[in-house]
Design a binder for these strands. Structure first.
Lengths: 143, 143
DNA sequence: GTGATTGCAAATCTTTTGCACTAAA
DNA sequence: TTTAGTGCAAAAGATTTGCAATCAC
């Protein structure tokens, strides 16, 4: 609430702060991509899609930099990579605990909030191993 | 029990029958790959691995045929494709309802029997959509 | 300035494709 | 025979890499 004015006046402030907070230099390209990714609702993107959006918005960013940036953001905890399709990588801006519907036909993803889902009966991981994440993908099809 | 003798005398009988049962011509290559895949305990393979094993066993099969065969077997219900790594495709000979541990460091997979696992609270799929499968991947790491 | 970051083109890796050849029925 | 299946080499698509140019600090 109290930040609305600031956001309006300095539109890059939020993403800039987010980049600084994770130790990434706020370069023109990173700011542009962060803007596309983090302003607005949560989303699922591929490198190709994000690159296309950047171009459509007249932001000059190479595809290689999009790949680099997606991975840097992921390593920094700003994004999460979702593996649902062996052909392309998806990145999710929603960092809360959640799962996914995957629409096989279209390749679209839809979040399933994690707080409603309960998984019981999973065995303990092998000795010396730690559970990094439990991912549920519900593959759905038309008809 | 009563098939042991038959198996010993005609080692290809089982896989031959499996291929016939799903309407795939039992060619030399398919029989060889099916032998590697289905004789012995359940396993997880990539095209690369299976091709390597075929070569090691002096079976002459091209990599393209390995890819074709893996997909044909999958379409025929003899294999299941597991998506855990965006870089390579894994195929699983275990067709029962189950899930997986994925060892991030090594890329190895380990089955989690499905009958012990209970998932509650998943929302219904969008109208017109049918759930094809619910996949759980438990990503584990060393330490 | 200086080290981090970027762009570009080439390289790499997995997977698919086109087509002549071979083999199963 | 006849049609499905195979091998090979080439293509395709996603992602990475090397390195000179550029930018943030």
């Amino acid at each position: 609430m109290e930040m609305t004015k600031t956001e309006t006046q300095r539109p890059y402030t939020q993403v800039l702060g987010r980049l600084r907070a994770v130790g990434l230099r706020p370069t023109r390209q990173r700011l542009a991509l962060a803007k596309l990714l983090f302003e607005g609702p949560d989303r699922h993107v591929t490198a190709e899609i994000l690159h296309g959006e950047a171009q459509a918005a007249s932001m000059r960013v190479s595809l290689a930099t999009v790949y680099n940036t997606l991975h840097q953001f992921t390593a920094a905890g700003l994004l999460r990579e979702i593996v649902v399709d062996s052909q392309r990588s998806y990145f999710d801006t929603n960092m809360t605990d959640h799962h996914h519907f995957f629409f096989v036909g279209t390749g679209e993803l839809k979040d399933i909030p994690g707080d409603q889902v309960e998984v019981a009966g999973l065995p303990a991981p092998p000795p010396g191993m730690t559970v990094k994440r439990v991912e549920i993908v519900v593959r759905v099809e038309n008809e």
